[in-house]
Design a protein around this nucleic acid. Structure first.
Lengths: 162, 162
DNA sequence: CCGGTTAGTCCTGATTCTGAACTTAGAAGG
DNA sequence: CCTTCTAAGTTCAGAATCAGGACTAACCGG
């Protein structure tokens, strides 16, 4: 997803890093505590060469890091960096959407429990008023980095709204 | 992304619908008010055959619908359904992550304004206690639909945690 | 009749993904 | 010493998907 990385759009930027096929599931497994290459490959059923590529890209982007858990031969375990941990809430919001609109047969495969002790479905809120963030309660306006270009002509005002 | 649709995992389910290349950006444009095929193709720079495929898939999944805005010849405009509007908050959380960890040159291209009148960065919260949802404050446990299979061996307990 | 608009479809070459076998480096067992 | 096992990749051929541009269909305005 190299083309997306050149767009002046934060969604495109994020997608170019964490939106490639398999990547969200790799991040999910890392969050769940899967640490090793073979475990990731086995759990997901992803081909090993692709897993190598994805982990390399995630490390280059600073989302995942690895450290040796043994020498001779060197074996690494992978885990989320600060940036990687920071994307976990987004994964949970996506999971909640999947639970609601594309429920897998048998019901939700996972239930989230908050540190307050209760199972929950995450909500997205405005930090100022605490109100819900929905398509109806939000407007997007051009920011300082808005520039006309592929994927951003709309925001920069170069494409007449329908 | 058909393989993901068979996994017993709500993230995989969601990704199989809204995670294909270009799809998040198509949804973004629809939220921003772009309605027509040609406008979408021009704004994003996506090839027209792929845009056709993506819109078909999104309509089949109930995320996007279209209605004719003229007859002879029939011309459609596309918009988000309830399910499509419901994924907008997730897009905003992803956008916020992109702003923070993969800032496009020049700063954030877009700024969100809430109905309370203030620009904001969305936060993910627990609806019970109102506390923040982060990787540290959340645990995932097996739900009713948990089943061993590709992408879910971990959750179902079939893969020893590291 | 000619050009313009809108929404696609069709085709070809390039890129990416899958699946399986192979490699490397050492450990364990007999 | 020989074989088998584990872990983390690497390599390769065939299949699937994507990009980009040309083409089609249906109508409008002049």
């Amino acid at each position: 997803m190299n083309r997306f990385g050149e767009m002046h759009c934060s969604i495109a930027q994020a997608v170019s890093v964490v939106g490639e096929p398999w990547t969200p599931l790799i991040l999910r497994d890392l969050f769940l505590g899967v640490r090793r290459f073979d475990d990731l490959a086995r759990d997901l059923g992803v081909s090993r060469n692709l897993l190598t590529q994805r982990l390399e890209r995630l490390m280059a982007a600073g989302v995942v890091s690895r450290r040796p858990y043994q020498e001779r031969p060197v074996r690494y375990e992978y885990h989320l960096t600060e940036a990687g941990l920071d994307i976990v809430p987004a994964l949970m919001v996506i999971m909640a959407w999947g639970d609601k609109w594309a429920t897998p047969p048998g019901g939700p495969p996972a239930v989230l429990v908050h540190s307050c002790g209760r199972p929950f479905t995450p909500v997205v809120a405005c930090p100022h008023c605490g109100g819900p963030v929905t398509a109806d309660t939000v407007t997007a306006t051009a920011g300082p980095g808005a520039a006309p270009g592929p994927g951003t002509w709309v925001l920069a005002g170069g494409l007449a709204p329908g």
